[in-house]
């Protein structure tokens, strides 16, 4: 079923069951957010993507990432209330992630250039804003290596018992999705160090460049079923091999 409503005066249509943030972005309306990623379910953690929703007599401030669109609502993305509360939440986040460029940029766009709170970073993930994108992604990928530990002010991101996990394949997606890029991934020509363990790379059979971690390839083979030799050459060598092959066929 289709629903129709307005965002900042613009008439928009969406499917029932869609989330407001996705619909707004599709229509080119920018709502800042930190914990949202289309590949995983929204949880409304960062509280930055605030909007004001008017429905009948009721006006509420709400996060747009996990708000299911409704027919006839009136959405405002830039009211004084929205700005005020977004600024406060960003000020809280700035104290957690003072060195994160993304947080600093969003905060300063909301007029927050310093925080009145003491730094709140925690080891070994300074700048972590506890948005759980890494955990949600790790689960979505089927690895289940990472988890959210504890609750309340003791909530952390980590591994069970703080010990390296057999389930981690070293894909580093956790870093890719991390809004503050606070996860440590260190690559050498032969190994990747991540979450307290080292993963061996498969090295390109032609040039020896790293392709993918062995464990990640094994996981992909068992889950996705492509043959092993798909993964044994680096991107560049594959490309030149393909070019040569094509050249020999065409000419």
């Amino acid at each position: 079923m289709t629903v129709q409503f307005t965002i900042d005066g613009l008439e928009v249509k969406a499917k029932e069951g869609e989330h407001l943030l996705d619909v707004a972005r599709r229509h080119g309306i920018d709502i800042p957010s930190l914990c949202h990623h289309e590949a995983v379910e929204p949880i409304g953690a960062c509280r930055v993507c605030l909007v004001e929703v008017r429905s009948g007599q009721k006006t509420t401030i709400t996060t747009s990432c996990n708000f299911l669109v409704e027919d006839g609502i009136e959405v405002h993305t830039d009211t004084a209330e929205v700005r005020k509360h977004r600024a406060m939440n960003l000020e809280l986040l700035l104290a957690r992630a003072p060195k994160s460029d993304v947080v600093r940029k969003l905060a300063s766009a909301s007029g927050v250039t310093r925080t009145r709170f003491e730094p709140l970073a925690y080891e070994p993930l300074p700048n972590c804003i506890l948005c759980e994108l890494c955990v949600r992604t790790c689960d979505m990928l089927g690895h289940h290596a990472l988890t959210t530990v504890g609750r309340g002010d003791k909530k952390r991101i980590g591994l069970p018992f703080n010990k390296p996990s057999d389930n981690c394949v070293g894909c580093a997606s956790c870093l890719s999705v991390c809004p503050t890029q606070c996860i440590s991934v260190k690559d050498t020509p032969t190994q990747r160090a991540i979450w307290g363990q080292k993963h061996d790379f498969i090295l390109c059979k032609v040039c020896g460049a790293p392709v993918i971690t062995k464990k990640h390839r094994d996981f992909a083979i068992s889950e996705k079923g492509l043959p092993e030799d798909y993964y044994d050459t680096c991107e560049k060598c594959k490309q030149s091999a393909a070019s040569k092959r094509f050249a020999s066929v065409v000419w």
């Binding site: 289309e38 992604t137 580093a172």
Partner: peptide, 11 residues
């Protein structure tokens, strides 16, 4: 939607 896992590049 891309989570940057790098599988596509390898595959």
């Amino acid at each position: 939607r891309c989570v940057g896992c790098g599988l596509c590049e390898a595959a």
